[in-house]
């Protein structure tokens, strides 16, 4: 915060802060009378609220943009911890963040095994197969307006359906191991990807296509030099949507049967045994994996579609 020191120091408390702290003090006194346990909660909440309001009032910069959500997230964690400890919430209802962290670090081998089973074998392989199949299909039907007109409405319709319901069927067909999870993921990502790719392939303007024609470019040359690069923003949009779908598909498919490892399996069995700290540990891993997966695709997008207005700085 040193580079922000000058505006911070000038109005250290900031306009309205006196009023804010006055109100907070009143609330705290009332809370003290009602239930002493509320006191630290409201104090933490009030202080971080004030802190965030102050930082948000500063001119926007990279540091403030990062600091505010981080403070907010930390506040939630601290409040969570305080609530669980002050009110003695039983661990079978809501374990404290420190308990979850302890479990997370103690169970690294199990979590890693589940991660490999669900994410690498199930979600990732299904994601690659499904997206590749959808991409190839989109390029193939691109030559036939008839197929496009037929497949697009059907694809859009199917993309809105609860496809996750096919999980029990696919588990029956492909067995309990990761193949069935990959199959669920393939089915889930196929249509969103198809619809996005088809939309992307029609994203070029007639002027650009005319230019290719004046160059006497063949269909394939036009495809590779003009239309596929122009389609990339749409393709990556589809790829990004599918990252979340892939993980959801792989996890939920395990609720319908799996070998004795995997994130979905662990979540459903630990829920049954009321081992909620383990469930939260799995959810943490799933959240991290999901964000990292999305982030990786977003980085690839930035590298491939650097020319697109949304990526320029």
């Amino acid at each position: 915060m040193t580079d922000q020191a000058v505006p911070f120091a000038k109005g250290w408390l900031g306009p309205g802060s006196v009023k804010f702290f006055g109100a907070l003090a009143v609330v705290l006194v009332v809370a003290l009378v009602l239930s002493p346990g509320l006191l630290p909660l409201l104090a933490v909440w009030g202080f971080s609220w004030w802190l965030n309001a102050r930082i948000a009032a500063l001119p926007k910069s990279r540091a403030t943009k990062l600091a505010v959500p981080v403070i907010f997230g930390l506040t939630i964690l601290v409040l969570w911890q305080l609530v669980v400890r002050i009110y003695d919430v039983p661990g079978v209802i809501l374990p404290a963040p420190t308990d979850i962290w302890a479990r997370l670090t103690a169970e690294v081998p199990t979590l890693w095994e589940d991660f490999v089973q669900t994410f690498v074998k199930g979600a990732l392989s299904g994601y690659v197969m499904g997206c590749a199949a959808a991409f190839v299909t989109a390029v193939l039907i691109d030559r036939s307006p008839f197929l496009q007109k037929g497949l697009l409405p059907v694809g859009n319709f199917i993309a809105a359906l609860p496809i996750i319901g096919t999980a029990p069927i696919l588990v029956m067909w492909f067995g309990f191991d990761w193949e069935s999870k990959a199959a669920v993921v393939v089915v889930m990502v196929f249509f969103p990807m198809l619809v996005n790719t088809v939309a992307g392939l029609s994203a070029t303007e007639s002027m650009q296509r005319d230019l290719m024609k004046t160059y006497a470019a063949s269909y394939w040359q036009t495809l590779f030099r003009l239309r596929l690069p122009a389609a990339m923003p749409f393709v990556f949009n589809g790829l990004k949507i599918c990252t979340t779908l892939a993980l959801i598909g792989a996890i939920v498919a395990e609720f319908f049967g799996s070998p004795i490892k995997g994130m979905g399996f662990r979540i459903s069995t630990e829920v049954g045994r009321l081992g909620l700290d383990m469930v939260w540990a799995e959810i943490t891993v799933a959240a991290l994996a999901g964000s990292a997966f999305y982030g990786a695709v977003a980085v690839a997008e930035r590298a491939v579609t650097f020319w697109h207005p949304s990526q320029r700085k």
Partner: peptide
């Protein structure tokens, strides 16, 4: 500035996994 980044980030995580719990 506090909530929006989390709301956007939540779209990238499989929140459906919390359902059984």
């Amino acid at each position: 500035m506090s909530v929006m980044p989390w709301a956007i980030a939540s779209q990238t995580i499989p929140i459906l996994a919390i359902a059984p719990m």
